[in-house]
Design a protein around this nucleic acid. Sequence first.
DNA 1: TCGTTTGGTTTTATGTTGCAACCAAAATTT
DNA 2: AAATTTTGGTTGCAACATAAAACCAAACGA
Lengths: 147, 147
Amino acid sequence: MVKRTSHEFSACPVARPLDAIGDWWSLLIIRDAFEGVTRFGEFQKSLGLAKNILSARLRNLVAHDILELKPCADNSNYNQYVLTEKGRGLFPLLVALRQWGEDYFCTEGEEHVVLVDREKGEPVRRLELRAQDGRLLGPDDTLVSGH
Amino acid sequence: MVKRTSHEFSACPVARPLDAIGDWWSLLIIRDAFEGVTRFGEFQKSLGLAKNILSARLRNLVAHDILELKPCADNSNYNQYVLTEKGRGLFPLLVALRQWGEDYFCTEGEEHVVLVDREKGEPVRRLELRAQDGRLLGPDDTLVSGH
DNA sequence: TCGTTTGGTTTTATGTTGCAACCAAAATTT
DNA sequence: AAATTTTGGTTGCAACATAAAACCAAACGA
């Protein structure tokens, strides 16, 4: 499914997730899953991608334990795709992507959806990287340090 | 280069960034750029991808103002690819990806690189989404709210 | 000045994607 | 309960993207 390139076996914790997720479509599937979409047809309608591709992506996400396939609770015999704990761990990533998108693609007073705190209805804060002692860290304040 | 699918024109601030970034390779290029890689050959050696693909990806990243092409400051006549402000805005996304990778792909006492605060040398804190009033927010505490 | 490195482009074989048609099981309608 | 529709896929095929290798010009180093 996903090509076996050198990076997939890298110990780098950036490269390996990419292989597990699969591709851009998978990320959009996950985004939809966070918004409550669970069924094949819903994903397909929401994303407008070919059914064979959707089928392959869902299978891959299930294989990587990002989604799981559960019987539909209610009346029906169909089953639904829901995020696992691991899948829910991708929430900050989706938020980061969204905030970057808001910053650089929705600037022109254009109306766009925004992520809000459910309780108060206010927009959420920006994601920030902080040191143990609370200092705000930018790209130049950090370093990837071998094992 | 990147296929023109329906999602690319979506107002959704999740889908549009994906189109700008391009693909997984681009994200690894950006990761390397954050770590100080600037030149074609360095990217190629670090990532091990075909030169024509690297060439296309770099061109795309430059076209989307994520990287820019600058003359090498020093002696040489070559030029280098460096992150723009927009590109540097992807830092939280890379961190989110990395933290997820650490959580789910490096669990087994395996030695792996870790992102540290340059000043103190300690690992950084986890990214957290918070409400305006500081409450910690999980996926179920948020909502995407139309315009 | 001659060879080597750098930064690509071109060519070609192979893999992946996307569309459309098809299909079976489940649900719904009559 | 029979017929129809909806759901959730699979299969086949054409178009497109990718990967590897050969090639090349400009820059650099000796």
